[in-house]
């Protein structure tokens, strides 16, 4: 495992820690999109089906279980926790995420990694992850003020995929030497979706101002 990959995984993990910290300490999920969180549950469940069929390492198994467990926990807090669910910004979380699911599924049927149930679902999870942040970005744009934890959460989530891009470049030259269209293009799209957010996040950080996205 190279340093980009490890940094990417740790950034991903940290983003989840930040979000859980916000939910558990402030008892609030204001500014967080339940729809994006639902999409992540679906992404992890469909991608990590190979937990039953393939073994790579203890690290790999542990991280997969952590990602599935924490995404379900976040979903549970936002949907069912007596206090937390009342802070959910339901009216602002208006993105039609079912369209994303349907679109990604059709794409995965047309352009799968391989023609089998698990491979189509794996491809689906890659496509869906690329666009899963959209409901969250739309919600942020509609929010008047974005609290620090929410801003940091989204930043870390974007940084994770950007680091994976470096990991893929590194692996291409040192190890795999194969073009991997599906993850590469999806990863590029996924990272590009954050470009706008990154810009305003860094600006607000440099000017020591509150983060705000223009409508």
């Amino acid at each position: 495992m190279n340093v980009f990959r490890l940094a990417g995984d740790m950034t991903h993990l940290l983003s989840i820690v930040v979000l859980l910290l916000k939910i558990r300490t402030t008892k609030s999920c204001a500014g967080i999109s339940l729809k994006t969180q639902e999409l992540y549950v679906l992404v992890f469940l469909t991608r990590y089906l190979d937990l039953f069929t393939r073994y790579f390492s203890v690290y790999n198994v542990l991280m997969k279980l952590i990602f599935i467990g924490t995404s379900v926990a976040i979903f549970w807090y936002m949907r069912y926790h007596k206090v937390v669910k009342q802070t959910y910004s339901k009216d602002l979380d208006s993105f039609r995420h079912y369209h994303l699911i349907l679109g990604c599924f059709l794409m995965a049927l047309l352009i799968p990694f391989d023609f089998s149930v698990t491979e189509v679902l794996w491809t689906f999870s890659i496509y869906l992850e690329a666009v899963a942040i959209l409901p969250q970005l739309v919600l942020l744009q509609k929010s008047r003020n974005i609290d620090n934890l929410t801003g940091n959460y989204v930043f870390l989530l974007g940084a994770y995929r950007a680091l994976y891009l470096l990991n893929w470049i590194y692996r291409f030259f040192t190890e795999i030497h194969k073009i991997r269209w599906i993850p590469w293009i999806s990863g590029l799209v996924q990272t590009a979706l954050y470009a706008d957010f990154f810009y305003y996040y860094i600006q607000s950080w440099r000017k020591h101002e509150e983060l705000k996205l223009p409508a």
């Binding site: 995984d9 390492s57 790999n60 991280m63 997969k64 994976y164 795999i176 194969k178």
Partner: peptide, 10 residues
Amino acid sequence: PKTGSVKDEL
């Protein structure tokens, strides 16, 4: 195999 080391990523 077709899947190779691609799938060791998260």
